[in-house]
Design a protein around this nucleic acid. Structure first.
Length: 201
DNA sequence: TGTAAGATCTAG
DNA sequence: TAGATCTTACAA
């Protein structure tokens, strides 16, 4: 008997939709990471879209570099990068190969493996585990070595939740950037307590 | 080889 | 509210 069949892995074609639509449809999906024999998972509650060629805030706006190469890859690939000396950012690559676009996962609602997440984050507050892009990668132990990994792998992947509670999608300007700040490409589940404290203008 | 900037977080 | 922290990119 397989007890672990309650979730259905999202097919590759799911990631082929336009980036702005993908950023919205990713809300409510379950992100799963199998690590050292246990499972860490959470529901996506906040995303941001980054899309060339019109987005100056996108890492690949000035062209392809070794750092952002995965952003040009297949849809459904992970793009993880390191910033501010301390933090990894988790992105899901979208658009056909050769087009630089990705959706940043900004916040999760913790689901499985919360005790492990608390240990990774060195905190006891569930609310403080994954309510920010740097926090969720620390809680789920995601780092640069995962960049370029396919979401069809059995290590990290996305699933459709068994029951989908109705929710309202809210959009706003993006957080923490200095260029293209007017684009309303941040999406989150309205009223969810795990959404990060963004300061949209 | 040197310098500046950055999709953040935490403590005070 | 400001500082920590270090990788990446770019110019000389």
């Amino acid at each position: 008997m397989q007890a672990n069949v309650e979730f259905k892995k999202l097919p590759l074609e799911f990631y082929s939709q336009p980036t702005l639509e993908l950023a919205q449809t990713l809300l409510g999906k379950i992100l799963i990471h199998h690590l050292n024999g246990y499972t860490l998972s959470g529901k996506i509650v906040e995303t941001e879209a980054y899309l060339t060629p019109h987005d100056e805030a996108c890492h690949a706006y000035k062209g392809k570099t070794p750092r952002n190469a995965h952003m040009f890859g297949h849809p459904g690939t992970l793009y993880v990068y390191f910033t501010y000396g301390n933090h990894f950012m988790l992105n899901i690559v979208s658009e056909p190969e050769g087009v630089a676009a990705a959706v940043l996962i900004r916040a999760l609602e913790p689901f499985r493996g919360q005790s492990h997440m608390k240990a990774h984050r060195n905190t006891e507050k569930t609310k403080n585990l994954t309510n920010g892009p740097g926090k969720l990668t620390q809680a789920l132990q995601i780092n640069k070595s995962h960049s370029g990994l396919s979401l069809q792998s059995n290590t990290i992947y996305l699933c459709e939740p068994e029951k989908i509670a109705p929710f309202e999608i809210e959009c706003s300007t993006r957080v923490g950037i200095t260029r293209s700040t007017a684009l309303p490409w941040r999406f989150y589940i309205y009223g969810n307590p795990h959404v990060s404290k963004g300061k949209p203008s």
